[in-house]
């Protein structure tokens, strides 16, 4: 109970304004008619607490779309590993996205450690936001068991009536709370209301697909030669939207940019997608994943199969972004259901 504090909803604006005075605050805001994005805010006014998962996940702050990793000077024949970073307070992160950030942390903390990622991440303070309901029908957070947080935040906001109940998870989070001077201690009533909400959520979030969590990996392991991949391959246009919007996709390309002086420049790391036709092509011309169906199979195996052997966790957060972003209508839940159906068909003869 000591680590719970209360912020009145009417004070959210002051809370954000106070932080924004010294730090960059990013939060979910409306983008277009029915979409949302994390963008810089200076007050609470633009923040939309009732948002559907943003177009791009917060990974864009941890692994920027285009990031300098080296600065070079041809004349001096020097390459200098370089990091550009800034202090950010990331506000309003859904539990699925908290999990996505945790997945990225694992990948970039493996040896050899990626200090560009680690040092940048250390300057980002994460404030989570509880979901009391589904974003929309595309989410599968209950299947992935991500409707409740599993750490990965400094502060966690739960909205109840006229206030936020805030779980203070780290010393950094505590300092931020103290600095604003707007929060009060939670009492017994708050704690019991928080418990009630968690119970209510159990009836709201139910596994969206007819397969238990533990069965997902075997489903994909045994589906390497499935016809489902051919069917999806026929639909796919290889735009890479599904991977760009995925909170746990981190594939990248390394590209040299040169300045107009033709001597100095930067080596950058830019987001890439395994859905690009040339992603697995070698210089000699051989393409090891030429078929769109193979590429889609690879994408989903990187969520439901490969990372489970390596890190004992799925790399799908259940956020539903890949389904929302697919202009051709490839739907994750439909795909999993199709694999289940095929498996049943095979078992019955």
């Amino acid at each position: 109970m000591e680590n719970l504090v209360i912020l009145k909803k009417e004070d959210l604006n002051d809370f954000v304004m106070q932080i924004a005075r010294t730090k960059k605050v990013v939060a979910p805001v409306r983008k277009g008619v029915k979409s949302f994005a994390f963008e810089e805010v200076t007050s609470g006014a633009r923040i939309d607490l009732d948002y559907t998962s943003t177009i791009l996940p917060p990974k864009k702050y941890f692994l920027p779309q285009k990031e300098t990793i080296i600065e070079y000077d041809k004349r001096k024949k020097e390459w200098t590993p370089t990091l550009y970073s800034e202090e950010i307070v990331l506000f309003g992160v859904h539990t699925c996205d908290l999990f996505g950030i945790q997945c990225l942390d694992i990948i970039f903390s493996e040896n050899p450690k990626d200090f560009n990622y680690i040092l940048r991440k250390n300057r980002i303070l994460i404030i989570g936001l509880e979901c009391s309901n589904y974003c929309d029908e595309n989410a599968s957070c209950a299947l992935m068991d991500n409707q409740n947080p599993n750490g990965g935040y400094d502060l966690f906001f739960t909205e109840i009536d006229d206030r936020f109940i805030i779980h203070v998870n780290t010393y950094h989070g505590e300092k931020l709370i103290n600095k604003t001077g707007l929060c009060t201690k939670a009492d017994k009533r708050d704690v019991s209301e928080l418990r009630l909400l968690k119970e209510r959520k159990r009836n709201v979030f139910k596994n969206e697909v007819d397969i238990p969590y533990a069965e997902l990996k075997p489903l994909f392991v045994n589906a390497m030669k499935s016809k489902v991949w051919d069917e999806i391959g026929e639909k796919c246009v290889s735009c890479g939207n599904c991977t760009n919007v995925c909170p746990t996709c981190y594939c990248f390309d390394i590209i040299d940019d040169i300045n107009l002086d033709l001597n100095t420049g930067t080596r950058t790391r830019v987001w890439d997608s395994c859905q690009n036709g040339s992603f697995a092509e070698v210089a000699g011309g051989e393409n090891f994943r030429e078929d769109r169906g193979e590429r889609q199979r690879h994408r989903l195996n990187r969520k439901f199969n490969y990372p489970v052997s390596k890190f004992r966790r799925y790399f799908c957060t259940g956020c539903g972004r890949c389904t929302r972003a697919c202009v051709a209508g490839i739907d994750l839940k439909e795909t999993i259901n199709a694999l289940i159906e095929e498996k049943k068909g095979n078992e019955n003869g």
Partner: peptide, 9 residues
């Protein structure tokens, strides 16, 4: 890390 050379897992 970058994923380009991945062969299955």
């Amino acid at each position: 890390v970058c994923g380009h050379c991945q062969i299955g897992d």
